[in-house]
Amino acid sequence: MSFVSAPHWTAVDWTPWVKNRLVGDRRLRYLDYGTGSALVLLHGMAASWQWWLENIPALAQHHRVIAVDLPGCGQSEPLPAPAEISTHAGTVLDLLAQLGIDEATVVGHSMGGLVAIAMAGAATDRVRGLILVDAGGVPMTPRRLALILWFLRLGAAVLQRGPVRRALVRSPRFRRLALRAGFRNPDTLSPELAAELMPVFAGPGFVDSVAASGRAARATVPASLECPVLIIWGERDVIAPVRCAQDLHDAVRDSELVVIRDVGHSPMIESPDAFSRAVLDFTAAG
């Protein structure tokens, strides 16, 4: 599906499309942009809706894009502890109900994949398809899961520091060093995008979300998914290696696997055109 006419995200004034809404007595920040069938974008741990900026202009040519700051992330208020992944899923479903969206395709990156799977399990009639991007919920050993959670805690603790965030925006060399684990090529994170991502990175709900993700990852059963599933994975992901994607593909009956070459854990940033094309091909197929 073509999206060559999409403007670059820096050419768009996003202010009118970024909104706040009370959902379960908590303020939720989200972007509502474009027209067509609903496409919900759920970011990974410690991130925010802006992680999808490279993709939203293309996706919004064919979809009403709802990109959410999950509770406690970005500029959304945190849930009361314990903030379980199922509660995150319920919060997003409640937001969609308030917006009058009866069904949607849900895209989940990393931790957002756990939330997307929980949404599909809780509301099979409202989730028409899932797109899991280097996602949580893949089969892995308890040791590897514990290592990933430890790495995420450590990385976020470092990136929460003001001087570190400022250096990530200003210094390409520092970005290369600090983001090597999450990106195959950290230079694909532009200074403009870093300036959007870093000020709201690792929000107040981060600590709770790490623990909740660990509990959900151990309990998630991807084989129970009933809707069509597209799995998009970075070939050089060192956090969740591509063999995890193959295991997930094998476990989910109605699934398709797209591996994007020479990118790491965030293919939507490292290879936005290939990522957006895979998403649009999947949604166009119905």
Rank of each mutant, 00 (worst) to 15 (best):
R161C: 06
L193Q: 07
S213W: 10
A178F: 08
A195G: 15
C244P: 00
P272M: 07
R170D: 15
W150H: 13
L42W: 02
G137T: 04
P82A: 13
R218L: 14
I232M: 11
E270C: 08
T141Y: 03
L93R: 06
P16K: 03
V210W: 09
M140L: 15
L114Y: 01
G136M: 10
A116W: 02
G36I: 10
C244F: 14
R26E: 06
E192V: 08
W49N: 02
A104N: 08
M45N: 12
R128Y: 01
A274L: 14
L93P: 01
V210R: 03
A212H: 07
A116H: 04
M140W: 01
H63K: 05
R21M: 15
S190Q: 08
G113A: 10
A47E: 11
G113C: 11
L114D: 04
W14Y: 06
R26K: 13
K19Q: 15
P186Q: 11
S2T: 07
P139S: 13
A212K: 04
V258L: 03
G100I: 04
P142F: 08
V138K: 00
L147H: 09
G34S: 09
P199G: 11
G264L: 09
W14Q: 07
R26L: 14
G34Q: 05
I269Y: 03
R64D: 07
F201W: 11
F174D: 01
W49F: 14
V258S: 03
P172C: 11
F3P: 00
R29G: 02
E226H: 06
D208S: 15
W233H: 10
D25E: 14
A181N: 12
L257H: 04
W49R: 02
L114E: 07
A123C: 10
V221A: 14
D69F: 07
G108Q: 06
R277F: 05
A146S: 14
E77A: 15
A116F: 08
E235M: 04
R243F: 12
A97M: 04
A245G: 14
A212N: 05
A157Y: 04
